[in-house]
Amino acid sequence: MGQRCRETLRVKPTKTAIKEASRKREAILFEIAMGTFDYGQHFPTSKNAIRFGKNKGALVTIEEQLKKWVRKAEKRCQHSTIRDYNSSIYYHLIPNFGHLTLDQFSTAHVYEWLDTINISNKRINNVLGPLRQALKDAYYDGLIDQNPMDRFRYLSPETREPQPFTPDEIDKILVQLDGQCRNLIQFAFWSGLRTSELIALRWQDVDLNSERVHIRTAIVRQREKSTKTVSGLRTIELQPKASEALVSQLTLNPVSERVFHDPTTGKPWLGDHIIRKRIWIPALETAGVTYRNPYQTRHTFASMLLSSGMNPMFVAQQMGHKDWGMIRKVYGRWIPK
């Protein structure tokens, strides 16, 4: 036996409307008898359409599926991750694909979109990530027979060669700085921390006696979170120059929870963009050093350790990588033969 359902036709009960309703009922009964009835075709806005419709993908748009997916993602992802997802969804995916229903969408639409944009392959992969996952959920929910994004391969990201600073360049940069600004940049060069980890560093995680620092948190978009990866939770051994920077910093900022402060405000740094604009760019320009972004301090740390003969596994652990595969791939030319 089938299930009895009631649907309302939102029209005025005129004689003509009642006659049309009667005809619709007869057509539905005939289709049921023939086994061709599609609930969604007759009542596409009904809450029962998804439940009983044959072509469920025709009843849900890409926009609706993306919004549903990101609401679920909010329960398990960091705030900064959700912000990136929303950027992709509302600036790229919905404007270009949101009007399509799930059954209309195909990878051809993605290739057409690629012809209209000028962003890196890495950014393209990141933008398409929410779409790929939302359609995966749609497949698991039985809305579509297959995920069309399974046919679209991730684009190969452009390989960016590390551009570490030489010892002479490091000296030229540091001589332009003093106080807390010098301590911050010196520690960055000799610790290999990401900027988000630097500005989140707490004195409670610093052990100067054993010359170790425990990396537990990061600050991304002014919010504290755990480190980028599980392997990012690590303990690093302080190099002499890093230890020197911390000892100096302790005399300037001994009581605050955060190690490094913005000397202009007297408060912890809010983000890497302020450091780049207020400290990094002016120092490099005054020193006459070719510009590289602050992340190159991390590359510099890795290349210095490897060039000095340090075990690649040790360097990987200090950098927060789960194994030394990334070290071999990115810094292979600095590993002594």
Rank of each mutant, 00 (worst) to 15 (best):
N125T: 03
A287D: 09
P44M: 02
D272R: 10
F43D: 01
R333G: 02
L155N: 02
T217P: 08
T300Q: 03
I281V: 15
G266Y: 02
I28G: 04
T107G: 07
N209I: 04
Q186H: 01
M319P: 05
R194D: 02
E161L: 12
C5T: 11
L9R: 15
P95E: 09
K322H: 03
F152G: 10
K56V: 13
Y154A: 10
I327A: 09
D168E: 13
K241P: 01
W334L: 04
F105T: 01
I94K: 08
G332K: 04
K241S: 04
S303D: 01
T227N: 09
Y111N: 14
A242I: 10
Q104L: 04
P44Q: 03
I117F: 04
G332Q: 08
D103F: 00
N96Q: 07
D141G: 11
A49I: 09
A58T: 08
I94A: 09
Q3F: 08
L174N: 10
A21T: 01
L135M: 14
I119V: 15
S106V: 11
Y91K: 15
P148Q: 06
L246Q: 08
P130V: 08
F37V: 13
N183W: 06
E112V: 03
H99C: 03
L131S: 11
S308V: 01
R194Y: 01
L100Q: 04
P95F: 12
R182K: 14
S46V: 12
R234Y: 10
